[in-house]
Simulated scan of single mutants.
Amino acid sequence: MEHIHQFISAEIPNIQQDPALYSLVKEFMIHGPCGAQNVNYPCMVDNKCSKNFLTNFSKHTSIDENGFPIYRRKNDGSFVEKSGVQLDNRNVVPYNKYLLKRYRAHINVEWCNQGSSIKYLFKYITKGPDRATVTFVQNNSGSNKDDIVDEIKEYYDCRYLSACEASWRIYGYDVHYRNPSVMRLPFHLPNQQQVVYGADDDIDNVLNQPSVASSMFTCWMERNKLYKQAKKTNLC
């Protein structure tokens, strides 16, 4: 896990080696003081820090049983003074050195390896803003003609492309992809199907499996039939 330190740090830098980074970490990336030292800090909920500070010292970066990183925070005596309180590496919010120097602002950088984290990051980008459509139409009350509704035009008017989807289309990437584009649906004559089984499998159990009498073609036909029935009953 040492490669994580190339991108993420959770320690106070040496003031002699990099005084500029030290000042930025002190100004933007130190949490607190909270807890018993300041019970009125905004993060305090039920007399506990809602951001899980103070963290523990750690000599090495590791991953806990839930897949979350435990960053290296050495107990080397480094500290910064904030509001009259000395805060050490346990109060450092994980950051990227380049981004911190580049933008000179609070930028919390975390290492993640879970799909739920990616979904959380992109769900607000892809869902788009709310939109209301208002139109002026001629009042046909008194006439027997039904109002003409152009469903295709309404679909395009209410369509929304987010920034990431627009970029994907501008660069010409595939929106849908399947390889091969045609799927084979093999089927067999009666009693001429292929049956795959292990050397120790019971022959009666093998012959009684539902998949023995079916094929890719018949499964697809049955699934398509069920889909049509569900569509007629407004189930999908």
Rank of each mutant, 00 (worst) to 15 (best):
P129E: 09
G35R: 12
T55Q: 13
D157M: 10
N224K: 10
N38G: 11
M1Q: 03
K231P: 00
E151F: 10
I125G: 03
N234V: 01
H188Y: 15
Q37F: 02
G128Y: 04
Q209S: 15
Y155A: 15
L87A: 04
E81C: 09
E2W: 00
F122R: 04
S116K: 15
T218Y: 03
Y120N: 06
H5V: 04
K153E: 10
Q194R: 09
I203E: 10
F53T: 02
P210L: 14
H188V: 14
H3D: 09
L99H: 04
F7M: 00
C219P: 00
I148T: 06
K231L: 15
D46R: 12
P129I: 03
Q193K: 15
G67R: 10
E151I: 07
D64C: 07
D76C: 05
K74C: 03
K51G: 01
L54W: 13
N191S: 15
G142F: 07
Y124F: 08
P42A: 06
C158W: 00
F136H: 07
C34S: 14
D18V: 02
V195Q: 14
L87S: 04
N89S: 01
Q17V: 08
V134D: 08
P94S: 06
V45T: 09
I12F: 02
N91H: 12
E65W: 08
I12C: 01
I63V: 15
T135D: 09
Q16G: 01
V93A: 07
N140D: 08
F187M: 14
F79D: 01
Y171K: 03
I70D: 02
V195G: 14
N144P: 02
S162R: 01
A10L: 03
K74V: 06
K48N: 14
K26G: 01
N208G: 15
Q194G: 07
G67H: 10
I12N: 01
C112M: 09
D130E: 12
L161F: 03
Q16R: 10
K26S: 09
M183S: 13
S215I: 08
N96R: 01
T55Y: 09
Q114M: 11
N113W: 04
D130V: 05
Y98V: 04
L99R: 05
K228E: 15
K127Q: 12
Y156I: 13
K145R: 09
I152L: 06
D64H: 10
C112Y: 04
V45D: 06
E81D: 07
N140Q: 10
D150F: 10
K26R: 13
F122M: 12
